[in-house]
Design a protein around this nucleic acid. Structure first.
Lengths: 216, 216
DNA sequence: TCGTGTATTTACCAAATGGTCAAAAACACG
DNA sequence: CGTGTTTTTGACCATTTGGTAAATACACGA
C-alpha cells in the first residue's frame, strides 16, 4: 500500500491537530500543565474529548508536542545572531526580536515560563540538548566581540539572561503590567527603554559617548 | 469570658498554622495553585488532610493567606526607597535588595510569578490596592530625580519593570539557569552585572563617565 | 484527678478528571 | 451507488481531589 512507515496525515488530521494544539496552547499557557483539563481544551478546540484522544495519546503528549514546537521558535532569535555582523547592531536587533516575540507570541512565552517555573520537568532534556549548546556558542561569540574591544566587557551569560528577563517580562507579567500601566500599549515604550539600556551597557568606553536619553 | 472577638491563638495553633503555610509555600510555588493538592501540603506539613482543614477553611484560603503575607514582603524593598537619599545609590541598593530576595526567598518569588502568569486571579485586588499606588508614587520620585538632572532620563515605569524582571529572573527561571550555568552560584556574578548595567543606564551624562566594566 | 474545650483521626462523599471502547456516523473513492 | 476506511460520539470507568461528619485523643486549668 504505502511504502512509508508513517502515512502522511489527511487534510482533516492536519486541521484537527492544529486546532487541538492551538486550543491547548491557550489553556496550558493560562493555567499550567496540571491546571489545564482535557475538557477545557476540547471545548476550546470545538471537539469532543474522546475525539481529541483520537489525535493525541493523552494530555501529556499534547503538552510535549507543544513544548517541542516551542523550542524551535524560542531558539530562532538567538540563532539569527550573526557572528559576522556588527556586534552592537546584532545584539540590539536581538533584543528587538525577543521583544517582538513577547508581543506577538505571549501565549508561547507564558507556556515556556510556566514550564521553567515548575522546574522544567518535561523540558529539561530539550534545554540540555538544544538550548545549552547554542547558549554556550553565543557566549563565546559575544566574548570574542568584547575581547576585540567592540563591546564593553560584561559577563555574556548574564547579559543574555538580562535580555531574556526584560523582554519576556512583558508577556509573562502582562497581568501586572496592565494594572500598573492602565491599558497603554507598553511594547513601544519598552522598546525605546531597552534599546537605550542595552546600548548604554554595551557601547565600548573608547567609542565615544553612549547614546544617553534626553541628550542628542 | 474574653472581651475580644477573636481569641488569641494557642501555641499549638500558631505552630501548626506556620507549618501549614510553610508547606503550602513549598507546594504552591512548585506546582501553582491548581497543580498543588491538599494531600501534598498535608504530607509536607506532617499533618493529616482533615487536620489542615481544621486550621484553614480550604485550599483557597491557604493560598490567599500566603499571597497576602507575600504582598507585604514584596513591597518592602520599594518602600525602603528613600526619596531623600542619593538617587543613584538608592536605586542601586534597590536592585541589590531585590536580588537578595531572589536568593533568599525564591519560593515566594515563584509563588508570585505563578499567580501573575495565570492572570493574577486572586491577587488582582492586592495589586490595585497596594502595589499600584506605591508604584505610581515611586515613579514620581524617580521622575523628580531625573528632572533635577541627578539621573539619566528614562521612563521610570520601564526602569522599575526592568529591575523586577532582571532580579526575579534568577529565582523564577532557576531551573533554566542551573542547566546553563552548571551549578555555579549565579547571584554574585549577577550582582556585579546588574550593578554595572543600571549604573551605566542611570548615571547622568554630565556627571562624568559611567563606570564601565573593565575600565578603571 | 476530673471535666471541658481543643486537636486529631477515621471513614466517608460528590465532583472532577484522564482515559477507554464499541458502535455509529461520515467520508473517500472505485 | 456500495464498500472499506477514517472520524466522531455516547456511555462508561477508575482515580484523584477538595471537603465533611462524627468519633476519639489530648491538654490543661480548677
Amino acid at each position: 500500500m504505502d511504502d512509508q512507515l508513517v502515512k502522511k496525515p489527511s487534510r482533516i488530521q492536519r486541521r484537527n491537530r492544529r486546532r487541538i494544539l492551538d486550543a491547548a496552547l491557550d489553556v496550558f499557557s493560562a493555567h499550567g500543565f496540571r491546571g489545564a483539563t482535557l475538557d477545557q481544551i476540547a471545548e476550546q478546540a470545538g471537539l469532543s474529548k474522546p475525539n481529541i484522544l483520537y489525535y493525541f495519546d493523552g494530555k501529556e503528549e499534547i503538552h510535549v508536542t507543544l513544548l517541542s514546537q516551542l523550542m524551535e521558535t524560542w531558539l530562532d532569535p538567538l540563532i539569527a545572531l550573526d557572528p559576522q555582523g556588527d556586534p552592537l547592531t546584532e545584539l540590539l536587533a536581538y533584543v528587538q526580536r525577543k521583544l517582538d516575540m513577547s508581543r506577538d507570541l505571549p501565549r508561547e512565552s507564558r507556556l515556556f515560563a510556566n514550564e521553567i517555573l515548575q522546574g522544567a520537568p518535561r523540558m529539561d532534556p530539550h534545554l540540555r540538548a538544544d538550548l545549552k549548546p547554542l547558549f554556550d556558542d553565543r557566549c563565546v561569540v559575544i566574548q570574542a566581540w568584547m575581547d576585540a574591544g567592540k563591546l564593553a566587557a560584561v559577563d555574556p551569560r548574564h547579559l543574555i539572561f538580562s535580555i531574556w528577563a526584560t523582554t519576556q517580562h512583558y508577556a509573562d507579567f502582562q497581568a501586572q503590567i496592565e494594572v500598573l500601566l492602565e491599558g497603554q500599549d507598553p511594547i513601544d515604550a519598552a522598546s525605546q527603554f531597552l534599546q537605550t539600556m542595552f546600548r548604554n551597557l554595551l557601547t565600548p568606553a573608547d567609542t565615544g559617548a553612549a547614546h544617553r536619553p534626553g541628550v542628542i
